[in-house]
Design a binder for these strands. Structure first.
Lengths: 152, 152
DNA sequence: TTAATATCCGACTGCATTAGTCTTGCTTCC
DNA sequence: GGAAGCAAGACTAATGCAGTCGGATATTAA
C-alpha cells in the first residue's frame, strides 16, 4: 500500500548526495548513478525532471553536472516526490480535476482527502537536510522538521 | 503519488455501507455493488478478502450476505487497506523482509521508514464510523480519531 | 576549430501490477 | 430439489513503471 515509485526514491537519494557534495561543485548524473548503483540513463532523466521543477540547477559541458538550486534545508521531500511522480492523490477517486468518477456516490472522498492533506504536510516537514546522517536520531531534525499535528 | 488501489477504495465504501445498514442484517455483495456502481464480481472478491481477514462475517445461502464483524468504530482504515492491498510500504526499498535491494547504499531508508510509520498511525486513527456523515467536520471524529503527533 | 563531456528530449520495449471477467463448486433456506 | 448467495481460482485486458536507445544541443578545454 501507498508505495512510492522507485524514481522518487532515486531522486531523493540523488538530492541527498548532491547536498553532501555541495562544496565540490556540480556533480554529473553519471557520478551519482555510480555512487548508488542506479541505471545512469534513468537517473539522468530524473535529474532533468528535478531541474525543470527548479529544485536543481544544471550546467552542460565539460565539468558540468547538477547542483542544488537551494539550500538542502529548503527543499522538502514533498516537492521532490511531487516533481517526479506528479500530483497524484491517495484515492483513485480524486483526480486532477477534483471530480469523482463514481457518479458522486462515493462518500469516502472527503474523509480521505484530509488524510491526503495530512500526508502532504508530513512530507512537507521533511527536508533533504534531514536525510543526511541516517544512523542517529538527529535531534536537529526533530527541531527543524518539527512536530506535525493532525486533527481529523 | 501515494495512490491507494481502487480495490481498497471499494472496500472502504463497502464497509461504510455495511456500517450504515447494520440494523437491516446481512447485505449481499450484489446489493452493495449496485448501490455504488461497482463491478459485482470484483466487489465479491474484495468482500471475501475482508471476511478472511476477520473484518466481516459472511453468511452463505438465501438471504445471506456480509455484515461487520465488529462495531464500526473498532475497524480502522489501516486494517482495511492492509487486508486488501497487503503489507506494502512507502519505499520500494523496504521489502517485506526488511532488506534494501540497493546493496546497503540506500541511506534514505531510515528517515522514510518513520514517515511510513506515521502514515500507518494516521490511518489507524481513522475508523469506519468516521466515514459516515461525510459533509460535516464531525467533532466526534476529532475526539475519537484524535491528534496524531509525529516527531522525526 | 575540434573533440570531449554532459545535459536534454522523445520514443520505445519489457515487465509487474491492477482491474475486471468467467467458470465452477459449495452452502443455506424455502 | 431449486433458487439465492458465498467461495475460489484461473484467466484476460489494460495500465503504469522501469529501464533502454538514439540522437540533438550546449559548454569547455586543448
Amino acid at each position: 500500500m501507498l508505495r512510492l515509485t522507485k524514481k522518487a526514491d532515486y531522486g531523493l537519494m540523488a538530492l541527498k548526495y548532491l547536498a553532501e557534495q555541495a562544496d565540490s561543485g556540480a556533480q554529473s548524473a553519471k557520478d551519482v548513478a555510480e555512487a548508488y548503483h542506479i541505471p545512469p540513463q534513468l537517473l539522468a532523466k530524473i535529474l532533468q525532471t528535478l531541474a525543470k521543477a527548479g529544485l536543481l540547477v544544471s550546467h552542460a559541458g565539460t565539468n558540468g553536472g547538477y547542483a542544488l538550486a537551494r539550500p538542502a534545508q529548503d527543499i522538502s521531500a514533498f516537492e521532490v516526490i511531487r516533481a517526479i511522480d506528479g500530483p497524484l492523490f491517495i484515492t483513485s477517486c480524486i483526480t486532477i480535476h477534483g471530480t469523482c468518477d463514481l457518479h458522486g456516490t462515493c462518500t469516502i472522498k472527503e474523509p480521505l482527502r484530509k488524510v491526503n492533506d495530512s500526508i502532504k504536510e508530513l512530507l512537507s516537514g521533511i527536508h533533504v537536510s534531514d536525510l543526511i546522517e541516517p544512523a542517529e536520531a538527529s535531534p536537529a531534525a526533530a527541531l527543524a522538521g518539527g512536530l506535525v499535528s493532525i486533527a481529523l
